[in-house]
Design a protein around this nucleic acid. Structure first.
Length: 401
RNA sequence: GGGGAGAUUCCCAAGCGGCCAAAGGGAUCAGACUGUAAAUCUGACGGCGAUGCCUUCGGAGGUUCGAAUCCUCCUCUCCCCA
């Protein structure tokens, strides 16, 4: 009975469990289970998509289980083949160590440190001899590995596929053996790798781990999964304002995907929101604001959230200027508008500056700038606006010259 | 070892001697509209104080009045045969 409660709790927000029966058996053991989640220290910049399984790990820690985080310093050298990533630039050892440290500090915003074990793949791979590597690789056939969809697709499409990439799933699977994982967490795209871990454990006479798979969090572009390389992510390190804005910019039909995966809201509440959206009882914008508040909760306090919300409403909704504007001193005298935009970093090139002006995106004290050859007399303070969100207060610097 | 196909601007992808700063799509940015930095529509999208000039089509040379387009060599990728 108790197990069933635990199982229901675990199943929340999960796409698939393989196998539920196996998981139940493990839960019945009444010992802390070892819940594995692997990270690639290729980047220190993690996003809320990474946090989906991590939240689950925390939930299980609360039930008394142990979170086992694997730092994939060897798989990082390969680069996850899932999702058509091409080979990445190899990182130095220092970079990997730094990334891992930063990564972990972000994970600890959610995880219970006392119930977390951290392991590096180098603990077992660094000293592995070629003879043993050969033995390990001999456990699987090429055909088995090629059933991985991304490998097959790339191969069939005639895209490059290096041999070392085929090792990725095998390494990940071997990690499960080394840490004696009871459970492995991952997004559904990790299914192949995690299942291979089960196979591997069997070959080493271990009880196979249960796979807990999560839906994929769609990125802010509304099409692809959230990922760093596609630049459609909301980073843990983003400021509250940035997070808030990015959440508001997602397509309305993504709202539920985010609610389900990135917040801790109860199932009952979720249904409520879903139906309110479906029969348009609520303004999607308000639902989205709610969503933004919920997501920010994990990372920021009430005050920061409030500030982010107020900023958004003021600057984006009502098109007013923000309270605090960056101030810049510019030498008094005459300056060409295009030059000014570049100097103030509102535009990177003169072409971009001209485009902004032609598009009608540049305002001085609320007056639209139409002429791109305009020279400005800098003698008193004024507000320069480029686009919707960029403001700068220009102050003449009289001391110079 | 032999034979074939390919590398194009942030990404995908057309172009195959002048009309090419290079189609189209995506991303991005701006504008309009709006309850939203949603959706939709419009425009821009190599650099330059700019109806012109400069630098780009894997790299290095060459042919030509003229090359992303043709030739030679090189680098990388894919396919077929051995």
């Amino acid at each position: 009975m108790k197990n069933n409660n635990a199982l229901d709790e675990i199943k929340k927000g999960v796409t698939e469990i393989i196998s539920e029966e196996g998981l139940n058996k493990k839960l019945a053991l009444k010992r802390p289970l070892r819940v594995k989640y692997g990270i690639d220290p290729t980047t220190a910049n993690i996003h809320i998509g990474h946090m989906v399984p991590v939240k689950k790990m925390r939930q299980m820690q609360n039930m008394g289980h142990i979170g086992v985080v694997i730092i994939g310093d060897y798989t990082a050298q390969i680069g996850d083949p899932t999702g058509l990533d091409r080979s990445r630039p190899s990182l130095t050892k220092e970079q990997v160590i730094n990334n891992a440290a930063e990564y972990m500090s972000q994970l600890y915003t959610v995880l219970d440190k006392r119930k977390t074990e951290v392991h590096w793949q180098s603990e077992w791979f660094e000293k592995m001899e070629i003879a043993n590597l050969i033995k390990l690789l001999g456990k699987f056939t090429v055909a088995q590995i090629m059933t991985h969809e991304t490998f097959r697709m790339r191969y069939e499409k005639g895209q490059p596929l290096s041999i070392h990439e085929l090792l990725y799933p095998i390494f990940q699977a071997y990690d499960s053996v080394m840490v004696k994982a009871d459970i492995e967490l991952g997004a559904t795209e990790q299914k192949f790798n995690i299942l291979l871990g089960r196979e591997m454990q069997r070959k080493y006479s271990q009880e196979p781990q249960a796979a807990i798979l999560f839906p994929i969090l769609i990125g802010t572009d509304g099409i692809n999964k959230m990922s760093k390389s596609l630049n459609n992510y909301i980073a843990v390190y983003d400021s509250p304002k940035e997070k808030y804005g990015k959440i508001m910019s997602i397509r309305d039909d993504l709202i539920m995907n985010y609610f389900e995966l990135a917040t801790d809201i109860s199932v009952a509440k979720l249904d409520e929101i879903k139906s309110a959206l479906a029969n348009s009882k609520k303004n999607p914008m308000d639902v989205k604001k709610h969503l933004a508040r919920e997501i920010l909760k994990t990372f920021h306090d009430e005050k920061e959230i409030k500030e982010a919300e107020e900023y958004f409403m003021k600057v984006c909704s009502r098109r007013e200027r923000p309270e605090e504007t960056e101030e810049l001193q510019i030498n008094s005298g005459k300056i060409w508008i295009v030059k000014l935009l570049i100097d103030t970093k509102m535009a990177k090139t003169s072409g971009e500056a001209r485009r902004l002006i032609r598009g009608g995106g540049v305002c001085i004290d609320g007056n639209k700038v139409v002429d791109e050859t305009l020279d400005i007399q800098i003698k008193k303070e004024f507000l320069l606006k480029a686009g919707k969100r960029k403001f700068v207060k220009i102050k003449p610097n009289i001391l110079a010259r």
